[in-house]
């Protein structure tokens, strides 16, 4: 009897493990803005308090990455600079925390509520409460999925598809429209991975001599970026690769090491373009190992409070505000790194 019990338990445990490993590959998604449906802006304007000082409630997702930290820092410092009272709440990756924070903002009668939604759905009830309270809502970095686009005033964030297009345009320009591309994708299923791939392919379609010959997920990490690049280089198509496109800088930085170990020169034998524009990418460009990084700007503070002040002054604002982003190449790296804040 004892042995039978053990057997069943062992099998069950094994099944659980298999299940767990399946779930594990879901991993965290990165950022998530989707284009909200455009519509007229007829949201209430902030009333302004008696003291005249604007009060803004902001619910942040958490502090999961350098990018997010820079994002938070930008919002806090910009509020201080403009003399706006910021009520900041960290949701620690939980929607219920964000909903609680938003309700408390309503009770505190703030002039505007801004937040980066941790997930897309489930916001309708709380956003209706905000609307009834007459407080305008600004989304930053990620969008929400609601049937009534008037539940928020504007969405400020990056356009991942455009980032992919910019990377592809650089490849076409740098190679004269002739390239064998290896692609390191982000975490499967995450919005930046899907959109950055889509944007890149869109541009490449018009250039028959630019071919994506290898494409695999490096899960947005250095270690996986290196491991997958190692495999690319040793596959049958390895010697044909002339360009590497990585969905973020970290994977490119890992892949650079793999390229060096394979006896090739990163940035010369294989040209490399990646997305994000973190400081380490600029260091790599100065060392000549990375060719180009397409910026994904976390410094949303200025544009956020521009929008808040415009609302307070009852000026019309755009329903979709795309963050200001640049494309940096090696020649600009040494100059640009001096002003990098993240």
């Amino acid at each position: 009897m004892q042995t039978h019990g053990l057997t069943r338990r062992t099998l069950l445990a094994a099944l659980c493990l298999v299940g767990a490993s399946l779930v594990a590959c879901e991993k965290k998604a990165e950022e998530r803005p989707t284009e909200p449906k455009s519509g007229a802006t007829d949201a209430p304007a902030p009333s302004g308090t008696s003291s005249g000082k604007l009060r803004v409630g902001f619910s942040q997702i958490g502090a999961e990455s350098d990018w997010r930290r820079a994002n938070t820092e930008s919002i806090k410092s910009e509020a201080e600079k403009r003399g706006i009272e910021l009520i900041f709440a960290d949701a620690q990756q939980k929607q219920e925390n964000q909903i609680k924070a938003i309700r408390s903002f309503i009770q505190q009668k703030v002039d505007a509520i801004a937040f980066s939604p941790v997930v897309e759905t489930g916001w309708e009830p709380v956003l209706k409460e905000v609307k009834e309270a007459g407080i305008p809502v600004i989304l930053t970095d990620r969008a929400v999925d609601v049937s009534d686009p008037n539940l928020f005033v504007t969405f400020i964030g990056a356009d991942f598809v455009e980032e992919g297009r910019r990377a592809a345009n650089w490849v076409v320009k740098a190679t004269g429209g002739k390239a064998m591309v290896a692609e390191l994708q982000g975490t499967p299923g995450s919005a930046p991975a899907i959109d950055r791939k889509k944007g890149f392919e869109e541009v490449v379609k018009a250039h028959p001599e630019v071919k994506i010959i290898k494409s695999q997920s490096g899960e947005f990490t250095r270690a996986k970026g290196k491991e997958v690049m190692e495999t690319f280089l040793k596959s049958g198509d390895g010697p044909r690769i002339t360009v590497l496109y990585a969905h973020n800088d970290d994977m490119a930085l890992g892949a650079i090491q793999a390229i060096e170990e394979a006896g090739k020169k990163p940035g010369v034998d294989i040209k490399i373009v990646s997305i994000d524009g973190v400081r380490a990418a600029f260091d790599a460009m100065i060392a000549g190992k990375l060719n180009c990084t397409v910026e994904c700007n976390p410094l949303l503070g200025p544009q956020l409070f521009d929008a808040v002040e415009a609302l307070a002054a009852k000026k019309p604002i755009e329903k979709r505000i795309v963050t200001k982003e640049g494309v940096f190449e090696q020649v600009q790296a040494a100059e640009a790194i001096k002003t990098r804040q993240y």
Partner: peptide, 23 residues
């Protein structure tokens, strides 16, 4: 990786192999 199995489905064959060995 070598057979360009997309990362979204890669855990599946892995899980099947593990299950087979355990069974």
């Amino acid at each position: 990786y070598m057979h360009d199995v997309s990362a979204d489905v890669a855990p599946l064959p892995k899980a099947v192999a593990v299950l087979a060995v355990c069974v």
